[in-house]
Simulated scan of single mutants.
Amino acid sequence: MNIPAAPAGLPAQLAIVLGAFAAGTVVAQLAGAANLGVAFGVGQLTFAAALVWVLLRG
C-alpha cells in the first residue's frame, strides 16, 4: 500500500491551515453569515479540521 507523503515541512502545513481558515471565513461571509464574528467562528472550525488533518497525516 502506497501512502502519499505529507507536504514538505512547516511552511506548507501552515499554508494549509491558514488557507482553510481564510476559505472558511470567506465562504461563511458569502453564504450570509450574520456578522464577521460568526464568519470567523466558521473559519476557526475549518482551521481546527485542517489542523487535525495535517497532524494525522504527517
Results as ranks from 00 to 15, higher is better:
Gln29Cys: 12
Ile16Asp: 03
Gly19Phe: 03
Ala20Ile: 02
Trp53His: 13
Gly19Lys: 01
Pro4Glu: 09
Leu14Val: 15
Gly43Thr: 05
Ala39Gly: 04
Arg57Ser: 15
Val52Arg: 06
Val38Glu: 12
Ala22Val: 15
Gly43Gln: 07
Gln44Asp: 13
Ala5Phe: 06
Ala50Ile: 02
Gly37Glu: 09
Gly37Met: 10
Ala5Ile: 03
Gln29His: 11
Ala49Ile: 13
Ala39Leu: 04
Leu56Trp: 14
Gly24Ala: 07
Gln29Ser: 14
Leu51Ala: 09
Gly9His: 00
Ala23Gly: 03
Gly41Arg: 03
Val26Gln: 08
Thr25Met: 10
Ala6Tyr: 00
Gly9Trp: 01
Ala34Cys: 01
Val42Leu: 12
Val52Ala: 12
Ala48Glu: 08
Ile3Ala: 12
Ala12Phe: 07
Gly9Ile: 00
Ala28Glu: 05
Leu10Thr: 12
Val26Leu: 15
Thr46Tyr: 06
Ala5Leu: 10
Ala50Phe: 03
Ala12Trp: 06
Val26Glu: 06
Leu14Cys: 08
Leu36Ala: 15
Gly41Cys: 07
Trp53Thr: 12
Ile3Asp: 11
Gly32Arg: 10
Pro7Trp: 01
Trp53Phe: 14
Phe40Ser: 06
Gly32Val: 09
Gly9Met: 00
Ala22Met: 14
Ala48Cys: 11
Ala20Gln: 02
Pro11Trp: 06
Ala39Phe: 03
Leu18Ala: 14
Ala22Glu: 11
Val26Trp: 12
Gly41His: 04
Val26Met: 10
Gly58Val: 00
Ala23His: 03
Met1Cys: 08
Gly19Val: 00
Ala5Lys: 10
Ala5Tyr: 02
Leu45Asn: 11
Ala50Gly: 06
Gly24Asp: 02
Ala8Cys: 06
Gly37Gln: 09
Ala15Gln: 12
Gln29Val: 10
Val54Trp: 01
Ala12Val: 05
Thr25Glu: 07
Asn2Val: 09
Trp53Met: 13
Gly58Tyr: 01
Gly37Phe: 10
Gly32Cys: 10
Ala22Phe: 13
Ala39Asp: 02
Ala33Met: 11
Arg57Gly: 11
Ala8His: 13
Val17Ala: 06
Gly43Ala: 10
Ala12Tyr: 04
Leu36Ser: 14
Ala22Arg: 09
Val38Ser: 06
Pro4Phe: 08
Ala12Ser: 12
Ala34Gly: 06
Gly24Arg: 00
Val38Phe: 09
